[in-house]
Computed example of a mutant assay.
Amino acid sequence: MKTIDSWGLVLYNRPFREEDKLVKIMTEKAGKRMFFVKHASRSKVKSVIQPLILAEFMLKIADEGLSYIDDYREVKVFQNINEDIFKLAYATYLVSLADAAISDQVYDPSLFSFLVKTLELMEEGLDYEVLTLIFEVQILDRFGVQLNFHECCFCHRVGLPFDFSHKFSGLLCPQHYHEDERRSHLDPNVPYLLDRFQSIQFEDIKTISLKPDMKIKLRHFIDQIYEDYVGLHLKSKKFIDDMDKWAHVMDKGKAGSLENSD
């Protein structure tokens, strides 16, 4: 067993035996691992083993089996996310997606940094739907999916009103639409934005603002990509898919409260 200091993001915890807990943490230096916390309710680390807690941990890392948390130093809490059911739902999905994207103990500091930075931007108030779309597009390669949203897969021309072909797993320019009679018939802005999303830098994310109808088009297409190429079905994603119903109920409740206050 080796001792390291590393930033880590708590993915989830679950009960183990009567008083203990297993805590899944994505660490910056040792990958994603399961940690054992004995007598969790009385442990000195009980306040930092909740989901979406980011902390600098002192860890004992085992080559096989469970690892252990010795202590912690600095702690960062995503307060705004935790106070908003919609932000929390999307953040939970991002965490679940990152968890599914790599195997345990795989060293992937770039994914760790990308996940943490995305959550930080969400905490700052950036559009959580757009952040989620960008995150989904950029980690496709972690699932072995590499799609080119930049050029026609036949003539390699760029900057045209492209459509996507599942048959050829790439874009078609107008000159080659006929190659796939079952092409996606996308709004040309969808592949244009996906091309931007694949390489966008964090400093540029703050400049992106999308209308609701465009976010819906992007969401439907990315869902189709994940269904066809990844085949991943997360409970946290299903919750997001059902959130339109939740939003409708909550909006009606707010409206009723305002009427009663009058």
Results as ranks from 00 to 15, higher is better:
residue 157 R to L: 11
residue 160 L to D: 04
residue 42 R to G: 15
residue 166 H to Y: 12
residue 16 F to L: 15
residue 246 W to S: 05
residue 161 P to G: 04
residue 180 D to W: 03
residue 158 V to F: 02
residue 231 G to H: 03
residue 172 L to S: 10
residue 153 C to E: 08
residue 64 E to P: 00
residue 188 P to E: 08
residue 170 G to N: 02
residue 232 L to R: 02
residue 89 A to Y: 08
residue 84 D to C: 07
residue 218 L to R: 02
residue 249 V to D: 08
residue 170 G to S: 05
residue 252 K to I: 09
residue 144 G to C: 01
residue 145 V to I: 02
residue 94 L to Y: 01
residue 260 N to H: 12
residue 204 D to Y: 11
residue 212 P to T: 03
residue 169 S to M: 00
residue 120 E to P: 00
residue 200 I to S: 07
residue 151 E to S: 14
residue 29 K to W: 08
residue 1 M to S: 11
residue 145 V to R: 01
residue 4 I to C: 07
residue 71 D to K: 13
residue 34 M to F: 10
residue 248 H to A: 13
residue 182 R to S: 09
residue 22 L to P: 08
residue 202 F to Q: 02
residue 255 A to C: 01
residue 51 P to W: 14
residue 189 N to Q: 07
residue 177 Y to D: 07
residue 239 F to R: 11
residue 59 L to W: 11
residue 66 L to G: 07
residue 205 I to W: 06
residue 12 Y to I: 00
residue 71 D to W: 07
residue 212 P to V: 05
residue 154 F to I: 14
residue 126 L to G: 00
residue 112 F to M: 04
residue 81 I to W: 09
residue 109 P to M: 01
residue 93 Y to N: 04
residue 244 D to S: 11
residue 80 N to C: 04
residue 123 E to G: 07
residue 51 P to R: 14
residue 43 S to F: 10
residue 26 M to I: 13
residue 2 K to L: 05
residue 123 E to P: 06
residue 177 Y to C: 06
residue 26 M to T: 08
residue 23 V to G: 10
